[in-house]
Computed example of a mutant assay.
Amino acid sequence: MAERHVLGLSGGRDSAALAVHMAQAHPELELEYFFTDTGKELPEVYEYLGRLEGFVGKPIERLNPDRDFDFWLRQYNSFLPSPRTRWCTRQLKIRPFEQWLWPSLDAGDTVVSYVAIRSDESYREGYASTHPNLKVRLPFREVGIDKAAVIDILNASGLGLPRYYDWRSRSGCTFCFFQQKIEWVRLMERHPESFEEAKAYEKNAVDHGSPFTWSQGESLDELARPDRVAQIRADHDRRVARAASRRVVNPLRRDDDPIDMDELYGASKVCLTCHK
């Protein structure tokens, strides 16, 4: 029976850093890299995955679901996914992953899946294996790699951070419901076509009786009003100022290092398959 080693990439910094770490620390492993593509990712994600492929020297397997977001939206009667009903993660991320591996697992192979949960994320858990031959490992926890070390790994490799970190906190679909309101404003400015697509999905869902909007408590039409945008910006600036005033001086960190969204709004239990 064979033993396979797989590492899922989201287009985010943590999984990218794990790929770099494993390539450097464990060159003896024949790692298989994969990315479950929803078709609704930011262009910056695809660009970064291409650069990462060049670094590891291997292709990244694209696991495209056989049925796309639009198909599943119809199956769920046009109800949008939400933090309480994450059907997008189940159908567009976990399902393709299991379909890819299950024939090998059922044939008796052992599969080791490496997940990029850091040592400073004690509140997170990895994918719970539902097959006896699937083993999950958390290398960052095993060797004590935290967020600062992740950034160091990426900078030392020459990859740096994905470009969307200039304005967004995580990878994932353009219309991810875990975005903060300031991120919706920035999406509207940087990728207006994606913002308009999200508005169209939302309007269709509301017309079909969906109780959810992408952003909690208001529609994207409401969020996009100039007075509301100004309010969101002001609230975000206040949060940044408060967080900056609480920062402990660190001689190893530049004063202009950006403040993470998790620092500003609190860490959330986001979907790991999308955001790591």
Rank of each mutant, 00 (worst) to 15 (best):
H131E: 06
H131S: 02
P132K: 02
P132R: 06
P132E: 06
P132S: 10
N133S: 07
N133H: 11
N133A: 08
N133Y: 12
L134R: 10
K135E: 14
K135L: 14
K135F: 10
K135M: 13
V136G: 07
V136E: 02
V136N: 03
V136D: 03
V136R: 02
V136C: 01
V136L: 09
R137Y: 08
R137D: 07
R137S: 09
R137I: 11
L138W: 13
P139W: 15
P139D: 12
P139I: 08
P139T: 06
P139N: 04
P139M: 06
F140K: 09
F140N: 07
F140Y: 05
F140A: 07
F140P: 13
F140R: 07
R141F: 11
R141H: 11
E142W: 09
V143N: 05
V143T: 12
V143R: 08
V143H: 10
V143P: 00
G144I: 03
G144A: 03
I145S: 00
I145R: 09
I145V: 15
I145D: 14
I145E: 12
D146N: 14
D146L: 01
D146S: 11
D146K: 01
D146T: 03
K147L: 10
K147Q: 14
K147C: 03
K147R: 15
K147E: 12
K147A: 05
A148Q: 14
A148T: 08
A148P: 06
A148N: 11
A149P: 00
A149G: 11
A149Y: 08
A149Q: 12
A149R: 12
V150N: 13
V150Q: 06
V150C: 05
V150D: 11
I151A: 09
I151L: 14
I151Y: 02
I151T: 06
I151D: 08
I151F: 03
I151C: 03
D152W: 13
D152Q: 04
D152T: 11
D152C: 07
D152I: 02
D152R: 13
D152F: 06
D152P: 01
I153K: 02
I153P: 04
L154D: 03
L154T: 04
L154F: 12
L154W: 12
L154K: 02
L154A: 10
L154Y: 09
L154H: 10
L154C: 08
L154M: 12
L154P: 09
N155T: 05
N155G: 02
N155D: 15
N155E: 15
N155H: 09
A156T: 06
A156R: 14
A156Q: 14
S157H: 05
S157E: 10
S157F: 10
S157N: 04
S157K: 07
G158S: 10
G158Y: 13
G158W: 14
G158H: 13
L159E: 08
L159F: 13
L159G: 01
L159S: 05
L159A: 03
L159Y: 01
L159N: 08
G160N: 07
G160C: 08
G160H: 05
G160S: 06
G160Q: 07
L161R: 12
L161W: 15
L161D: 07
P162L: 15
R163F: 15
Y164H: 04
Y164C: 01
Y164V: 00
Y164N: 01
Y165I: 01
Y165D: 03
Y165H: 11
Y165F: 13
Y165R: 04
Y165P: 01
Y165N: 00
D166Q: 09
D166R: 15
D166N: 10
W167I: 00
W167V: 00
W167G: 04
W167K: 01
W167H: 09
W167M: 08
